[in-house]
Computed example of a mutant assay.
Amino acid sequence: AGRSLQQGNGMLVAQKQRGYYMVQIPLTLGDIKAEVFHSLADIVETHGEGLLHTTQQQNLALSWAAESELPELLQGLDTLGLGGSRPAVLRDMVACAGASTCRLGICLSRGLAEALAGELSQDGLDLDSLGELKIYISGCPNACGRHPVAQIGFYGVARRVGSRLVPYYMLLLGGMVEEGKTRLAQPVSTILARNVPSFLVEYLRSFQNSDKYPDFEAFLDGKGRKIAEDLALSYMEVL
């Protein structure tokens, strides 16, 4: 069991039924190539309950996988490039379709998600220590990207700068969905769209450099919101 859990790298969730697991299969913003999907279907057909479920994190899930079949199942997923090598904060990042295909979209939310993943991966942050930090992005104030329940949420807005409409994102902090603790994220400040990746890296670094707070929720309840407000000021203006 220990070896299987280690191989799962965060993909496995123990079910209430002893000896069975739900296997979370990570996708990038819900995308999967047709040929990979066909091969995945062949694997799923002979493992667990034989059915795939979609998740609110834009991933896939297979339930009722017996502990004895985990090594073969996880190896098959690795072969398809669907292993759990990405940190959870990147694996579970959510973005709506955005302005590229949605008529209501103001900003390119999927593009921002890709930029955030790239910036976070290259900046030397300890992403594993962030755990399952929820970063959700919507291309407009509508909640298709689930930003109201994100620990760090963004939604697209437009601001007039001179004669131009310029894309910005509203930053929200503190959302949570948990029994007895559910709350909506609260708006903090707008940030110029192209500056959001740099802002987020600097903000998360300030959290990781603080030894005073055991987790991100404690950081927000302490000085985290004020730090975000102050930091956002330097990322608001068009240069």
Score class of each variant (00 low, 15 high):
V13R: 14
Q17G: 11
V23S: 08
T28H: 04
G30K: 02
G30E: 03
F37Q: 12
E45Y: 14
T46G: 11
G48E: 04
G48R: 06
G48A: 12
G50M: 13
Q58C: 05
S63P: 11
A66C: 14
S68V: 15
E69C: 13
L74W: 01
L77E: 01
S85G: 09
S85P: 03
S100Y: 10
S100M: 07
C102S: 11
C102N: 07
G111I: 13
A113M: 11
E119D: 13
G124K: 11
L127R: 13
Y136I: 01
I137T: 01
C140R: 00
N142G: 07
C144K: 00
R146I: 00
Q151N: 06
I152M: 05
G156E: 04
A158Q: 09
R159M: 06
R159C: 08
S163G: 07
R164P: 02
P167I: 04
Y169P: 00
Y169R: 02
G174A: 03
M176D: 02
E178C: 01
Q186E: 08
Q186I: 04
I191E: 00
L192I: 08
A193E: 03
L200T: 01
L204E: 03
D215F: 12
F216Q: 00
R225V: 05
E229Y: 07
E237W: 11
V238H: 10
